[in-house]
Structure formats: C-alpha cells, structure tokens
C-alpha cells in the first residue's frame, strides 16, 4: 500500500471532472440552457514531468488550467494534489494549496498590474503568504529575477511593466509563479503572443527551471510542435474530451485518434513540392 503510493501517487490528479456553464434561469425560460465545457476529464500528472495539454480554441484546455489553480470550480469530479482531495478548500487549506500551485498566464500585457513595479508584482506571493522580512524578500526577488534571465536583478527591481518588452514581461510572470517554490505550475499558452525567436527562449527558461527546481508543469498550448519540444507527455483535447494521451514522441509519431491525425496533417511544414 505505502510502496504503491510512493511510486504511483501523481502530483495532480483529475478524476471525472466535468464543467458545465449554465445560463441563468430567467423568468421567461425556466430551464436555462447549459454548455458542457469539459466532459468527464481524467488525467494524472507525475512529479517532475512537463505535461502538455494540446487543443484548439474552445476545446476546454484553458478551463482545465483554471480549475487546477482554483479560479473555477468543477461541476462534477475530483481534484487531487499529492493524493489528497482538493475540491472544496477553504481558509488555511486553500492558502496552502495556492502556495503549491501557481500559474503563468497567456498575455503578459494583461497579467501584470500596470500600476505596480516589477518588485511589487513579484513580492506579492511572499507578502500575502507572510514569508520572510523586508530584507530577505528583497534578496529573494533579486535572486528570482536573475533565475528568469532578468539580470542584473537590481536593474529591473524598480521598473514598471510598460518599460519592459513582451518577452521580459512574461519572464516577470514566470518569476512571480516560481518565487514560492511551488510544486506545480500551470502555464497557459505563455508564448502565444510572442515572436518565435522570443518564445523559444522562454521555453528554454521553463526547461531550465524544471531541471533546477524539479517543478512539475502543465503546459497548455494550441501548438503541437511546441508541446513536442517541451513536454514529456501530451494529452490532446477536443470539444471538452481528452481524445488521446501518451508520450510526446508516441502521440506525434503514431497518433491513434482520428482528431490527432487530422491535427498533425494540418501542421504547415516545409514541403516544397507544389
């Protein structure tokens, strides 16, 4: 029993998670219509892996990420962190969960408060979780800035988001996500607003961070090639249903589901025949 747990307990587990959005019952239509965004999703993410969730817009991939960081509640199903159910956490337990599960958002122009300096933004997780004092926090922020490639950290400390480029802003968002030393990070299309030459550098950063801190990532993307570059395992999601899960290599080399095949065929490539 204990041995099995040691080997098998995934860091994050979703069991039969369903999410329905219902339009409010108004007084003319009593029933109210509902849209099923996620249908019976089950997946398990192992420690230290980068798990890719690939899907097109409207597939429900972002909803999974938001459920995992507790920005939304599933209609049905169970979420587990390190084997412990984490569906309806409150107070201390929720604080504890949030210090272990962090998120990197899609648009770095939207996810940083324009009125806060870089330091204030990165400090926030430390402040709200009451970790350290003014001096140690300051050191930690500068150290983290340098980890995410914004060095020297002192130089960025008092800057404001509008003084940084898109790539640099996303690095700030990464710094905010890793400063608490979380176990699990949800990265929701972190490069979809970036140029290819900048995006690949951010991918490299995520790989470096994984190696250095042994963090686990859920990488949400619409780009199969990016998932292949970054991820150990991939799940393909379509219309709220996971249609295929497997190692990144296998899913791309030997897709089983018709939708995955279609997705792979549609990738533009450098074939100069026509």
């Amino acid at each position: 029993m204990t041995e099995e747990q040691n080997i098998q307990t995934p860091i994050i587990e979703l069991n039969g998670v369903t999410k329905e959005y219902s339009s409010k019952k108004s007084f003319l239509s009593k029933a109210g219509t509902s849209i099923i965004a996620l249908n019976n999703i089950s997946l398990a993410i192992q420690k230290k892996e980068i798990f890719g969730l690939v899907g097109q817009s409207g597939s429900g991939k972002t909803t999974i990420g938001r459920i995992l960081v507790k920005l939304e509640q599933p209609t049905k199903g169970i979420i587990k962190l390190n084997g412990k159910p984490a569906n309806s956490l409150k107070g201390k337990a929720l604080e504890n969960y949030r210090s272990k599960v962090q998120m990197i958002f899609q648009d770095p122009y939207q996810s940083l408060n324009p009125h806060l300096s870089i330091a204030e933004t990165i400090l926030e997780p430390l402040v709200v979780n009451k970790i350290g004092n003014a001096v140690t926090r300051r050191e930690k922020v500068i150290e983290t800035l340098e980890i995410v490639g914004l060095s020297p950290g002192q130089e960025f400390y008092h800057r404001y988001p509008h003084q940084l480029s898109g790539g640099q802003r996303q690095r700030v968002a990464v710094a905010r996500a890793i400063i608490l030393d979380p176990e699990f990070i949800v990265a929701d299309e972190p490069t979809s607003m970036m140029d290819a030459t900048i995006a690949i550098q951010l991918f490299q950063l995520l790989l470096d961070i994984r190696k250095k801190f042994k963090m686990t990532f859920l990488f949400i993307t619409h780009n199969l090639a990016a998932a292949r570059f970054l991820c150990d395992r991939i799940a393909v999601i379509h219309n709220g249903v996971i249609v295929e899960t497997g190692s990144a290599e296998m899913v791309i080399k030997d897709p089983q589901h018709a939708y995955t095949k279609k997705l792979i065929l549609a990738q533009p490539g450098f074939n100069f025949k026509n």
Partner: peptide
C-alpha cells in the same frame, strides 16, 4: 535565428 527557433513536428 528565425529558422533556428522554428519548432516543427
């Protein structure tokens, strides 16, 4: 650089 950062399948 552009080609070097292009991710393909």
């Amino acid at each position: 650089a552009l080609l070097g950062s292009y991710l393909s399948l």
